[in-house]
Design a protein around this nucleic acid. Structure first.
Length: 737
DNA sequence: AGCACGCCGACT
DNA sequence: GTCGGCGTGCTC
């Protein structure tokens, strides 16, 4: 190989001591410099191993501005270059962009693209067999079947051939011993078979066909675009975007389907398989290490055509990515809130822009900012109405709790109780939804008024009667339920305030002692396995009344479910979160959508003290558009995203006092800034509550450059405890691409 | 982010 | 006398 003239790092190589920048997985502000040993070939994007302090780490050879000379005495040589495709130019620009946008060190962003230790070297060849032309000494029926397959001269794996011929592998071994096969080395099999774009194509009609045609046109245009596809559950969004995937596959390009982690279910994969004849490669946090490496590598080589993954899949080193689908685009799980703070939905848009390919955002209840982008024409809106002849939507009604109060000590109104009774009597199922785990969210002493509070983070301790514990849902602190008040020592005067699912179950059992009642919440004893069993049991009709938290909102179909009761539809409306109304709308839409999917005439009843609230009105009238319009206007008034003309800053910290203190300092650091919102510990994400002296700034605004200048000044001037400032720019990325 | 170094409290 | 908590500083 010729050397000097092909040096990719500008000009002839200085033979003695070529130096390249390398991004290492630590929070340095820029790449470190390493010496390239003679005879070693590296180029920008090469995945390498380098010494860093006392250990060896993975890194990526970078490019860009020449960095100032580093003390040559510090310079150490690259240990090794991995034999894998270098990260592509567009991938590197993407990582740079994410680093700048999120104000995260580039090395930590690059680390997300290298999350497959040991996947960087090629997989070893697999030992295989090929027919040698020699016949076995004696023919048997089993041997004939094997030879019929092997005669084509292609290579087989030992177990693959045995399986295909329907014989045991000892038949193969016997033939091998007689020289029927010669050993060959074949490339390892792909992690998933190739998907066939024309495998299970179904004919789409009406609105679905029109929507698919629009997406197809975007794919064929071979350029950047963002489409926002909305339509309620059952309107066939998945079938429509499958058509866009098929077209991208026909172009020979790769596809990424982003899903919130919990939506990556077997049922989604099966749906994909029945359309394309093969499963997509999966990518999520609890993938087996071996599989993880293979998916990483095969995405890089192009052997994997479709990846369905959680947000981190966005950082895979695709060979030729041609389409990203972001399903459930409104889902907050797309936000990563530790180390590098980013929203995968927005970064997907950025990756599409850099790679010049289409991105499709999909949701039954789009986020307000995406809706705005759809309305303004920045994203192309595609609306799917309900298909004619489909199961009717549930018939939804509000229960005004001021007019139909529950009996003393209860939480279920007589109207809802009557409806449950009727449903159960018909042999159908009722779902009661309350997004609150445990028995009661607050316990207090009736004698002295003491309230049980978390000693670590100061939120209320939630009683879990079934486990005999009081727990902090913020930080995980738990203790045995005390029998007396720690303040005044009085026994038997502790009182539970407010309902949780366990308490609703108690009330239901009191009214319907003969009904089979199940409580479903994420803290269920027996974990995910038990949960799956319970869900199957419910689907088979082995329960009459199901009481569940938000985990019943997703996915599962209960064919016998004909009543949904929302115990407290107002819960979540008044928690200080600027997205409270939006989140409630999304959650309640999902839950009420659980009924009415079976052909049974079904009903939804929402208990509320605020029947006039826009969320309640939007849900029962089915007029989502009116809700969005109002919500958008509301935010415009409050200078909240996506319209904040001035920066809007949200500070959250582990105590409300800390948050207030930070906010005061921010006002001092940047007096022109308006709209500082302070969130207390209840709203602070778990990760931040756990680490002490950490706070988070959520900055909403429209222009990234302004935001960043402002933030840098503020960080320099503001209070900073051990450098642990985390910043999330919750801005529309398109406005400053 | 890791990891070493270093300085004060309770224990095999 | 040591073990071990986490504060501080460094890595091309």
């Amino acid at each position: 190989m010729s050397d000097v003239t092909t040096d990719l790092f500008g000009g002839p190589a200085r033979r003695a001591g070529r130096v390249v920048p390398v991004l290492v997985p630590m929070p340095a502000p820029r790449p470190y410099s390493y010496a390239v040993p003679d005879e070693m070939h590296v180029e920008p994007g090469s995945v390498v191993q380098v010494p860093l302090g006392p250990r060896q780490v993975f890194g990526v050879v970078w490019d860009g501005a020449e960095d100032e000379a580093v003390d040559p005495k510090k310079l150490r040589p690259i240990t090794k270059v991995f034999d894998c495709p270098p990260l592509k130019e567009e991938h590197r620009r993407f990582l740079d962009w994410v680093s700048t946008y999120t104000l995260s060190p580039p090395g930590l962003v690059a680390r997300m693209a290298l999350r497959a230790p040991a996947g960087f070297d090629p997989e070893p060849m697999v030992e295989g067999l090929r027919y040698s032309g020699i016949l076995p000494e004696r023919m048997t029926a089993a041997r004939t079947r094997v030879l019929d397959l092997a005669r084509d001269g292609l290579s087989w794996t030992r177990s693959g051939l045995a399986h295909a011929a329907g014989v045991s592998s000892s038949v193969i071994d016997g033939m091998t011993a007689q020289g029927v096969f010669e050993t060959v080395f074949i490339p390892p099999p792909p992690v998933v078979p190739l998907p066939d774009p024309d495998h299970g194509a179904s004919r789409l009609e009406g609105a679905q066909a029109e929507a698919a045609a629009e997406l197809l046109a975007e794919v064929r245009a071979l350029k950047f675009s963002v489409s926002l596809m909305d339509g309620i559950t059952g309107s066939g969004k998945t079938e429509v975007y499958f058509e866009a995937i098929a077209e991208t596959l026909r172009q020979g390009r790769q596809v990424l389907i982003l899903l919130p982690e919990i939506a990556l279910t077997a049922s989604f994969l099966e749906r994909f398989e029945s359309r394309f004849g093969a499963k997509p490669a999966e990518w999520h946090s609890d993938l087996a290490p071996k599989t993880r490496e293979r998916v990483w590598r095969q995405a890089a080589t192009g052997d994997v055509r479709v990846v369905a993954g959680a947000r981190s899949a966005l950082f895979l080193p695709f060979d030729d990515l041609g389409l990203i689908i972001v399903d459930e685009e409104h889902d907050p799980a797309y936000k990563q809130e530790d180390r590098v703070f980013y929203n995968a939905r927005d970064m997907a848009v950025v990756r599409g822009h850099i790679g010049r390919f289409p991105v499709v955002l999909v949701s039954a209840t789009p986020s307000v900012e995406s809706q705005v982008n759809g309305l303004s024409g920045r994203y192309r809106p595609i609306h799917l109405p309900v298909r004619f002849g489909d199961a009717a939507l549930p018939d939804l009604h509000l229960i005004d709790m001021r007019r139909h109060p529950p009996e003393r000590g209860g939480f279920l109104s007589p109207v809802l109780l009557r409806a449950i009774g009727k449903t159960v009597a018909k042999g159908e199922q009722a779902l009661l939804f309350l997004n609150r785990r445990g028995y009661a969210p607050l316990t207090l002493c009736r004698v002295c008024g003491h309230r049980f509070q978390c000693p670590q983070c100061s939120s209320w301790l939630v009683e879990h009667r079934f486990r005999g514990q009081i727990q902090c849902h913020q930080c995980g602190y738990a203790e045995r339920t005390p029998e007396c008040c720690p303040e005044c020592g009085t026994f038997d005067h502790l009182v539970a305030c407010g309902p949780g699912v366990e308490r609703i179950a108690e009330e239901v059992e009191r009214h319907f002692p003969d009904a089979r009642t199940i409580v479903l919440s994420s803290d269920i004893l027996g974990g995910v396995k038990r949960l799956r069993l319970e869900l199957d049991a419910i689907a088979k009709g082995e329960a009459d009344i199901v009481i569940g938290t938000q985990l019943v909102a997703k996915g599962h179909n209960f064919p016998l479910m004909s009543l949904v009761g929302i115990v407290d539809a107002d819960l979540g409306l008044a928690n200080g979160d600027p997205r409270a109304a939006e989140r409630t709308f999304q959650l309640l839409s999902q839950v009420t959508g659980r009924a009415g999917r079976s052909g049974l005439k079904s009903h939804g009843l929402l208990q509320t003290y605020q029947p006039q609230h826009p969320v309640m009105q939007a849900i029962v009238s089915g007029d989502a558009h009116a809700f969005y319009e109002r919500e958008i206007a509301e935010r415009e008034r409050a200078h909240l995203p996506p319209f904040g003309r001035l920066a809007s800053i949200i500070v959250s910290a582990d105590t409300r006092n800390d948050a207030e203190a930070h906010a005061r300092a921010l006002r001092l650091a940047a007096p022109s800034t308006q709209g500082i919102t302070v969130l207390g510990p209840a709203e602070a994400p778990l990760a931040l509550v756990r680490g002490r002296h950490r706070f988070r700034l959520l900055v909403h605004g429209q222009r990234s450059s302004d935001m960043q200048g402002f933030l840098k000044a503020m960080i320099a001037a503001g209070p900073r405890e051990r450098g642990s400032v985390h910043v999330q720019l919750d801005i529309d990325p398109q406005s400053f691409l």
